[in-house]
Structure formats: structure tokens, C-alpha cells
Amino acid sequence: MTHSKKEMRKAYLARLQQLDQNTRLREQHRLAQKLYDLPQWTNAKTVALTMSQSFELDTAPLILHARHEGKRVLVPRTLPKRQMEFVQIDEDTEFEETGFGVLEPLAGKVLQPQEIDLIVVPGVAFTADGKRLGFGGGYYDRYLANYLGQTVSLALTTQLADAAEWPVEDHDVMIGQVVNLEQE
């Protein structure tokens, strides 16, 4: 049965916020290990991640791991008209909190889409075949429409959805691979 994206977003966000901390930590660790084993990650020299919010899969360990492996790490910065860009970060990067409650870099080198090897795309819910329910702003769909590199999303068990739960629209961009724990 198909529901509106707004209804599904609300339901999946509630599920995410209700997930107990021990389960979240255990699943995050297992998903991270699966990510690190992917050729998309292993071969990437430049990786774009997000600065996660408290209810999302914690990306801080992924960022640290990427930097430890010598990868160039980028995070998004929002722009007017629901656009975004990816900015290189390091240990000296200063951040500010946006109106969305997300940390964004104040300064740093902006890289073009063709300079990014892998984007780890966040979302509220995912299907195993690559459908993504985002947060409703369309920032990632707009960016990914002009991106030809690899995309991966990590789905906690509570974020894995059935294929027909929400309508897919023309502007929705599919994710190259959704890493989840049901694949084990």
C-alpha cells in the first residue's frame, strides 16, 4: 500500500527516534564494517558524508575512519534555492549549526561533483533496491541529479522499507547500493 511521502517520513522518523541506544550502536557498527568492506569505499579517495543529527545513524565514526585511511572527507553545506555543495573538512574546520539543526563548515575547499568518488547518502528510509525517502528538502536529489559517481546508503533495520510504501517521483534519484543488515 502506498502512502504519501510526508506520512511515511513522519512514521520512519518516529521509528528512528524510538530505536534503543544499544540496538542503534550495534547496528551502526555492523553497517560501518560492511561499508568499509565495499569496493566503492576501498577504492574511493574522496568521500562525501553528512554531519548526522542525534536520531540518525552516527557518521562521526565513518568520518574518522575515512580520515584515518587517508581519504579526503567532504560534508555538505546548504545554499539558497535548496541547493548544496560539498566542502572538504579537516581537524581545523569550524562549523556552525543551521536552522535545520545540522552542522555545516564555515569555510573550506568546495569540490565539484566529478571530484567525488563516493557519496554516502543519508535518508529517513530506504528500499533494498535503492529507493530513498529523504528529509523532504530535495537537496540530495538535486545534487545527485548531476553526480555520476558511486552512491551508498546505510539503512538501520528500522529504516528498511518495502518497495511500494511511498510513491517514487521523477526527480527522485536512486541510490547505487543500500547497505543493510538483512543482506547477511
Rank of each mutant, 00 (worst) to 15 (best):
S4P: 09
G137S: 07
D20K: 11
E27L: 01
V124D: 02
L57G: 03
Q150S: 11
P113W: 00
T59V: 06
N146R: 12
T59L: 02
E184L: 14
T158A: 12
R67H: 14
M174I: 05
L160Y: 03
K6Q: 15
A107P: 02
Q18W: 01
L103P: 07
L19W: 03
R72C: 14
P39R: 07
Q183M: 11
M8D: 02
R82N: 12
Q28D: 15
F95T: 01
R24E: 08
P113A: 00
D172I: 08
V110D: 05
D162Q: 11
V173Y: 00
L156F: 03
N146G: 14
P122H: 01
Y147P: 08
F55D: 13
Y140F: 15
A145H: 06
D129F: 14
E184A: 15
D129K: 15
K109V: 12
P80H: 10
E94W: 09
H171E: 13
K45I: 14
H65F: 11
T42Q: 11
M51E: 13
G99H: 02
L64I: 14
Q177W: 06
G136S: 08
F95I: 03
G130Y: 10
G101T: 10
E184S: 15
P105Y: 00
E7G: 09
A66D: 05
K71G: 04
V168L: 03
T151D: 12
L35W: 02
E182M: 00
E165P: 02
K6D: 14
T42Y: 00
L74K: 01
E169V: 06
T59E: 10
F86A: 04
E104Y: 01
A44S: 13
L13V: 10
L25N: 03
Q40V: 09
D162Y: 03
L49Q: 08
A11M: 07
L133Y: 10
D162P: 03
D170H: 13
V124I: 13
S153L: 04
Q33E: 15
T127G: 10
L144V: 04
V47D: 02
F55N: 12
R132G: 12
F55E: 13
G70N: 06
K45H: 15
Q112A: 06
N22Q: 12
D92P: 00
A11W: 00
L160R: 04
V47G: 09
P39K: 05
T157N: 07
M174C: 08
R24N: 09
L35G: 03
R82G: 00
D172S: 11
P113C: 00
G137I: 05
Q40T: 09
D20M: 04
L16S: 13
H65D: 12
Q21W: 04
Y143E: 10
A155F: 13
E97G: 00
R142F: 07
E169F: 01
T59S: 14
L154N: 04
T78Y: 07
T78C: 09
G136P: 07
M8I: 15
L156M: 10
V73R: 08
V168W: 05
D129H: 14
Q33N: 12
F55K: 04
K109S: 13
V178F: 05
T50R: 06
V87E: 04
S52I: 03
F55G: 04
K34C: 07
K131G: 04
L156S: 04
V124Q: 00
G149C: 06
D117G: 01
Q159I: 07
I89E: 08
R9S: 13
D170P: 08
M1P: 14
I63C: 01
